[in-house]
């Protein structure tokens, strides 16, 4: 399935990721955590396919387990003491549960960020901040162009070194390090000297004149408005829930959850809707295509 959510206006996608990331970090309620974890997992698989599943199971899961275990070892707050460690510190039910919750939270954040990285490409970021911080976003754009160029140049230099009989991948650690430094040093000279021409080209094209504008190829269209509106509504609902205390739970000194009611269920549904928004949009688009194809 091709991702349609990432074709939305950068303002929409950026707001979305900011919201889900902040919500995931703040809302430690079990339902909220589950919803966030589930939605981020689904979207990351949708975006990155099998690779995402393997990464999630192979690296993320053990990390989360480790984090869940480590918390009660150092955090001894809580009233429900289960047993004592050898050094005399108590292990509490609260700290175990908090460890699990924190691990879940961290997992959701990492997963959301992996989606963010796939959707918010550098040009979108530069567009968003081009007006606000023009000089720095230009630096960013230049650096992003230079990094692959320099990496390629490092390759070319190391081949050229082999061509005069200096094999860079052989030898012991010290020799390798020396070769690497030699190449890095050559690349630095090359980069700095050649950048002078880049500065000339910028000056020649009027960089530094007052009143510089920032061009973009993005347009905030009706679809963006609709999605943005829906997003804002959902966020408002979720924040109302947060203000009422439905989205968090108290871990210390003792566990405390507000009892669920119709309102809180509504808030959780809103959270679920927000979290699965990209997946919903993508699925709707897929169905639309199927329909158009069948009508042909």
């Amino acid at each position: 399935m091709k991702d349609v959510f990432s074709t939305l206006h950068p303002v929409v996608t950026f707001t979305y990721f900011t919201a889900v990331l902040l919500f995931s970090m703040c809302f430690m309620h079990p339902v909220c955590l589950t919803v966030s974890l589930l939605c981020s997992f689904l979207y990351s698989v949708l975006l990155r396919g099998k690779k995402a599943i393997r990464f999630n199971l192979l690296y993320l899961l053990p990390l989360l387990l480790f984090m869940a275990v480590i918390n009660p070892a150092f955090n001894h707050a809580g009233v429900t003491i289960l047993f004592y460690l050898k050094n005399g510190n108590p292990v509490t039910l609260e700290s175990i549960l908090y460890g699990i919750a924190a691990a879940g939270m961290f997992g959701a954040v990492v997963l959301w960020f992996s989606c963010y990285n796939a959707v918010m490409t550098s040009d979108k970021f530069i567009y968003l901040f081009g007006r606000l911080i023009p000089a720095l976003s230009l630096i960013l754009s230049m650096a992003l162009r230079f990094v692959p160029r320099y990496k390629a140049q490092i390759q070319v230099i190391s081949i050229a070194q082999q061509g005069i009989g200096r094999d860079v991948s052989n030898g012991n650690i010290l020799e390798r390090a020396r070769n690497g430094l030699q190449i890095l040093s050559m690349m630095t000279t090359w980069a700095l000297e050649n950048a002078i021409e880049t500065a000339d080209s910028m000056k020649s094209r009027g960089y530094g004149l007052p009143g510089r504008t920032s061009f973009s190829i993005f347009r905030f269209d009706r679809r963006d408005k609709a999605v943005f509106g829906a997003m804002l509504l959902l966020m408002a609902a979720i924040l109302t829930g947060a203000a009422a205390g439905f989205n968090t739970m108290r871990f210390f000194p003792s566990l405390k959850l507000l009892p669920p009611n119709a309102f809180s269920l509504g808030v959780y549904c809103a959270y679920l809707a927000l979290g699965s928004l990209p997946v919903i949009i993508d699925t709707a688009e897929e169905l639309k295509w199927k329909r158009i194809k069948s009508e042909l």
């Binding site: 650096a143 320099y150 990496k151 390090a177 690349m187």
Partner: peptide
Amino acid sequence: AIAVAGRAAFFM
């Protein structure tokens, strides 16, 4: 960019 790409010189 050098600081970031420099890592590539030490791929080994």
